[in-house]
Design a protein around this nucleic acid. Sequence first.
DNA 1: TATAATCGCTAAATCGATTTAGTAAACAAC
DNA 2: GTTGTTTACTAAATCGATTTAGCGATTATA
Lengths: 342, 342
Amino acid sequence: MRKKSHSPTISDVAKRAGVSAPAVSRVLSADKDFVVRDETRQRIIDAAKELNYQPSQMARGLRVSRTFSLGIVTPELDNPVHARIIYGAERAAADHGYSLLIAHRSPDMDEASIYERLVRHNRVDGLIVATLQDEQTGVPALKKLDHPFVLVNRKAKGVPHYVVIDDEGGSKKAVEHLVALGHRRIAHLAGESHRYNAKCRLRGYRAGLKEAGLVYEAGLVVESGYSQNGGAAAMRELLDSGVKRPTAIFAATLLAAAGAMSVLREEGIRVPEDVSMVGFNDGSIAEVLAPPLTTVRTPIDEMGYQATSALIKHIEGDEEFVGTTLPSTEIVVRASTAPVSQ
Amino acid sequence: MRKKSHSPTISDVAKRAGVSAPAVSRVLSADKDFVVRDETRQRIIDAAKELNYQPSQMARGLRVSRTFSLGIVTPELDNPVHARIIYGAERAAADHGYSLLIAHRSPDMDEASIYERLVRHNRVDGLIVATLQDEQTGVPALKKLDHPFVLVNRKAKGVPHYVVIDDEGGSKKAVEHLVALGHRRIAHLAGESHRYNAKCRLRGYRAGLKEAGLVYEAGLVVESGYSQNGGAAAMRELLDSGVKRPTAIFAATLLAAAGAMSVLREEGIRVPEDVSMVGFNDGSIAEVLAPPLTTVRTPIDEMGYQATSALIKHIEGDEEFVGTTLPSTEIVVRASTAPVSQ
DNA sequence: TATAATCGCTAAATCGATTTAGTAAACAAC
DNA sequence: GTTGTTTACTAAATCGATTTAGCGATTATA
């Protein structure tokens, strides 16, 4: 009395249409090399529809050695940036008939073993690597698998399969925005220096300064990491460092900006009257901060979407795969930035 | 020249161990009814290890009609609450050797068709329904599938398979906290009245009032929904309504609290000096608000974990499945609550 | 010594699709 | 009228596991 009603199989459809199973298979997969009379084709299609036939991906996959599933490896599931990458990836996968399997990597877990589990155990057709932790060990591990993969949100040496946002360009825009408001002493709360995004954003910051004819001052750059606590600590460090106080700050992330603002508030330094603040990557948090935060908005979900689409194309035989940098970034001006005083 | 090196199959292992494929299968799956000499068993285990053999879930699934995968249906992937449910679900799935397939439901998508796609197309063994939208249509749709499922974060009539947090108890604690601080005019920014969680939290609010001997005043409850914009609008409505201003507010969500606080700020009403604020569900945002928000912390990821574990047990033949309400909730006191003034 | 029971395994069927090879029927060409 | 082509399909093999049925060898029982 366990299972009574199975899903209809290809033979059920074949029987109903009065043909053989292969005929059904080839008609439904629109095989060009298979010649059928229109009438037979129609019978098959009708039968499939009437039974609401869905081919078993398992049986299909067993034969063609594919699972039609992709694995996405992500740290910090509750980080909105990663959530949006997954969101984009999920849409792309669904659009192409693939399913998306998520694997969370907690910081203590071995990177390589997660990749291996997805490829060997789950047999995913491809891997979406959302934040590769360590280029030194991660990239060789990925390459050794000899399986299609794509890097999201970072590049790595010798890996042509990546999709990133324009961290550098966006950061430059942030600086330009501040410069346009008259700021000339602009600090940067930077991510950890070994991180890909951190490097790009720092580079963009420097490019912005340079273009405005401002000199880079090492004392105005403090490593904060990406977190709110890091942002707070870095802000405090900056205030205590003895350098002349900046009139504006560009933080490497939204959370770091938020953390920095809470320190400023404690110190009685007003935003934006005394100091303007810009954060990187937009998010709903930006709106509820006091004051609402000016940010650089980036196409995060688009990044997930494009990476996944490209991966699927690659899996399905499209040999060329060129890395993509999504250009569109824009400043979302809120209340945390204002013209420099006096 | 396509694929050279396949993953090792059961026959590879069998050959290497000098036995038949079934022997390998039964030894590796620790089949009690299969009698082997210890030496043969060891040869098989060694061979499997040497080849790094992983059984193909596809072949296995085809035979036993299971995919060893679960589908989780979630709205608003970038909502931290849902992210944490997924996080918990992913861990539970991994712990039991299942994989987790995520399906995002955007508000415009038909609920039933997503369930159906997961069950019919992806053939998941079970469904984790994280926020059922509409009880009237959703529950019959789920039941019609005749497939194991579990409701997370809400109950529904006639569905014994659910895991929820203690919305009511947590809300009561929020009120108790405020009462302990001397507040007697406590408002509630409520979720939409048809939502499960909203109802529970309102009930908890009323229970808290009652226990403190306070009378429920309809004018102090405003429907805000769960979002920051909703919280802001409701706050404004409350201020404009003409009722005597409350000294404390319990908001149904963290975001609603944040939105409400931004309105208070605009109006020059200080938190917590003039009004105390508590939000439901903790999250990192709480720490960066001005002031940092007192919240009710709930075991969200635990909810995802337990729901998934229970679902798997159910799939694997455990007939009994009793709904669970996770008891532990606690107040996280931050700077947004203070003793009532005068 | 013949028969039964137990041990330790294997052969073959099966799951539901795809793919390769092939075949019957209709028609054309020589 | 035989051979060759084309048309429209089908039979059988296959993917990699599990499961059912069963078989030869050894030990126990009558």
